Amino acid sequence: MNKILVAIITFATFTTTIMAQNKTINTADSKVVWKGYKVTGSHEGTITLQSGNLNFKDEVLTGGEFVMDMTTINTTDLEGDYKGQLDGHLKSDDFFGVNNFKTAKLVFTNVKLTGKNSYVVTGDLTIKDKTNPVTVNISVYGSKATATLKIDRTKFGVKYGSANFFDGLKDKAIYDEFDLVADLQF
């Protein structure tokens, strides 16, 4: 009788282990795009994903974590001197201060299945050593996932050009929220 019980427990443990999977993100084939808005238009660019993983159980997303290399933030809608100036400004202490804060990190804290292959994730986002909760929409298809989120930069100490903190900006104001879209391969 004991041998049967041991066999059942061993099989159950083995089966559970197989059904829970941690899938590493292929950072070379994945892409993170940002888009920021101002009164007179918008700018967009990319940030390199340094590392990441998604956790699944029975093919259902249950968790994840991502680290972005903020030193790679770059503008893709400008060229020449304008691109260089904006890239430098985004890396400066006015924005992301990449000399002191080289990475940003997102850690999933709650995952809710909202439809076939669709999830709403609550996570802790850390930028410039400040951590705040964010909501992420994620769709998973096979070995690909798309994550979208809107971030209020002022919650992370990025206040440059914010009409909520500076008077008289008029058409120089930069909106507090920016978008991130990550196309992930694993």
Score class of each variant (00 low, 15 high):
residue 111 V to A: 02
residue 184 L to V: 14
residue 44 E to V: 02
residue 29 D to I: 00
residue 125 L to N: 06
residue 71 T to I: 07
residue 104 A to G: 07
residue 16 T to C: 01
residue 61 L to P: 01
residue 53 N to C: 04
residue 155 K to G: 11
residue 154 T to A: 12
residue 73 I to L: 13
residue 58 D to Q: 04
residue 142 G to W: 01
residue 2 N to D: 06
residue 27 T to V: 15
residue 34 W to D: 03
residue 64 G to Y: 01
residue 65 E to A: 12
residue 9 I to T: 13
residue 107 V to K: 09
residue 116 K to P: 09
residue 122 T to F: 00
residue 157 G to P: 07
residue 155 K to W: 09
residue 180 L to I: 14
residue 8 I to H: 08
residue 11 F to N: 00
residue 24 T to D: 12
residue 36 G to I: 05
residue 171 D to H: 12
residue 176 D to P: 14
residue 42 S to R: 02
residue 124 D to G: 12
residue 161 G to D: 02
residue 146 T to K: 15
residue 85 Q to K: 13
residue 93 D to G: 15
residue 80 G to E: 09
residue 111 V to Y: 02
residue 5 L to I: 13
residue 77 D to K: 03
residue 17 T to F: 11
residue 68 M to C: 10
residue 102 K to L: 07
residue 9 I to K: 00
residue 30 S to Y: 06
residue 30 S to I: 05
residue 39 V to E: 12
residue 94 D to G: 11
residue 122 T to R: 03
residue 157 G to L: 08
residue 82 Y to D: 08
residue 145 A to S: 09
residue 45 G to L: 03
residue 58 D to Y: 07
residue 172 K to E: 13
residue 62 T to E: 08
residue 146 T to D: 04
residue 162 S to G: 11
residue 162 S to H: 05
residue 33 V to T: 14
residue 104 A to I: 08
residue 98 V to S: 06
residue 115 G to P: 03
residue 148 T to D: 09
residue 118 S to G: 03
residue 2 N to I: 12
residue 19 M to E: 00
residue 66 F to L: 15
residue 150 K to Q: 12
residue 70 M to K: 01
residue 44 E to S: 09
residue 105 K to G: 09
residue 58 D to P: 00
residue 45 G to T: 06
residue 174 I to N: 04
residue 186 F to N: 10
residue 175 Y to C: 09
residue 160 Y to R: 03
residue 176 D to S: 14
residue 145 A to Y: 04
residue 9 I to E: 00
residue 113 L to P: 07
residue 154 T to N: 08
residue 45 G to A: 04
residue 137 N to L: 06
residue 121 V to I: 11
residue 146 T to H: 03
residue 172 K to Q: 14
residue 25 I to F: 07
residue 137 N to M: 06
residue 73 I to R: 10
residue 59 E to N: 15
residue 182 A to E: 05
residue 118 S to D: 14
residue 128 K to Y: 11
residue 137 N to R: 00
residue 165 F to M: 12
residue 96 F to D: 12
residue 93 D to M: 00
residue 154 T to P: 04
residue 144 K to W: 02
residue 45 G to H: 01
residue 63 G to L: 08
residue 102 K to P: 02
residue 100 N to D: 11
residue 16 T to E: 00
residue 112 K to E: 10
residue 102 K to F: 02
residue 90 L to K: 03
residue 141 Y to H: 12
residue 89 H to R: 05
